[in-house]
Design a protein around this nucleic acid. Structure first.
Lengths: 219, 219
DNA sequence: CGGGTAGCCTACTGAGAGTAGGGAAGGAAG
DNA sequence: CTTCCTTCCCTACTCTCAGTAGGCTACCCG
């Protein structure tokens, strides 16, 4: 990196801002190479800062990953939450579809970063696993709460299985879309997956299980 | 390492047998520590063989992981396939439940090895990701084929979404059981998850969506 | 009892995670 | 404007671990 200005101009940047720069660069590299193959040297190079800074701010490579995961997952959480809230007045099936659509949409927009940071990758074993599962737990909670509201009579186990099942299904389907070119739009994918889950939900709730979408069924 | 026997007894073992020993040890260590934190030195120590042997037989750390994954997934595949075949005569819902139960049962028996080798962990990015996804693809194919048999009129996308969704749901639910003590038995878990998926399937197939299990509904 | 091969080892290299220990920008106080 | 102190930042290491070079020997075959 040749600095044409001649001056060694090393600009001091306040911590909060630097942290964001680092997170952005790290997310990029993780997405490109995966956790394992990412080197702290490369991240530091890309930010234009030296390695000890990364450790100063994020403790370890895992810590850096974790911070990335937390950030992107918070975005995902609020995106789905917003979509679901907007669909609230159109009934439960609409809420389900809206949440799913928001999820696939998010995955589309973030591409590999989504895949690496939210699904595979990861360290497993050790405290990081716990931390990652905890962050994921937010998402589960969101669904469990929504389910509980509409299925007050279902047992907690039933709600839990349903919620975890729905999340797992979404993750795997999103991953499939990412790999196979994803000819299907988020909207259609959401409708298809909702068709799979909705009747089970309706039966439990004592509603008609027909595949009616509040906004009209796809295909 | 002091050899009390006095003799340097280094027994030569045929390749096929050694490979199995290595795979067994590797599976152990991967399960205990996760991929990242597993060192080839430790695996070699546990087998009682030197490191270059591991590379001779499995090329790289990823290669070793891949071999473990392939082996355990083959077991899983045949276990679910058998269970499904046995339930065939009791109708589709029974097949679904049997497959799920076999899956959860397998996850229970293999504990952390299942979690590390089949789900998280992993390398991501690079050829290993492809290889792992390919192996997982077998499982998906199995389900897609079964679904196609009963839903000949459904579009390929619908079948694909359903199959990937079902797999993702199973993985996540199994993982949840592993973490939260798993008070629920494989049998019950399978019934609960089948309750979530079966009606969607039934609606598509034009069958009654009621939650009847061929062997009696749980709870 | 001499090959020849298949199984095995010791002893290295190189990359990259993480650290020690010190500098200097820039604002606050005198 | 000088001094001081905090915050930001760097160079130059150590140490662990994946992967390799190069050679030795147990065992089967003739």
């Amino acid at each position: 990196m040749i600095d044409a200005g001649g001056a060694p101009r090393r600009k001091r940047v306040p911590r909060a801002e630097r942290e964001q720069q680092i997170l952005a660069a790290a997310e990029e590299v993780f997405a490109e190479r995966g956790f394992q193959a990412t080197s702290m040297d490369e991240v530091s190079l890309r930010v234009g800062v030296s390695k000890p800074m990364l450790y100063e701010y994020f403790t370890s490579k895992e810590g850096l990953l974790l911070a990335c995961v937390a950030r992107i997952r918070a975005d995902l959480h609020s995106a789905t939450l917003d979509a679901m809230a907007r669909a609230e007045r159109d009934g439960p099936r609409a809420v389900l579809e809206a949440g799913l659509e928001a999820y696939f949409d998010f995955a589309d927009r973030h591409g590999r970063a989504w895949a690496v940071l939210l699904n595979e990758s990861v360290i497993v074993a050790g405290p990081a696993e716990e931390a990652i599962e905890a962050i994921r737990g937010q998402q589960t909670l969101l669904i469990q709460e929504a389910l509980g509201r509409w299925l007050p009579s279902a047992s907690p186990e039933r709600v839990a299985v349903f919620a975890h099942g729905l999340i797992g299904a979404s993750e795997r389907v999103a991953r499939w879309r990412l790999r196979e070119g994803a000819g299907i739009k988020p909207r259609e994918t959401a409708a298809l997956l909702a068709d799979a889950f909705w009747p089970g939900f309706a039966v439990e709730a004592g509603l008609p299980p027909g595949q009616d979408s509040a906004k009209g069924r796809i295909r």
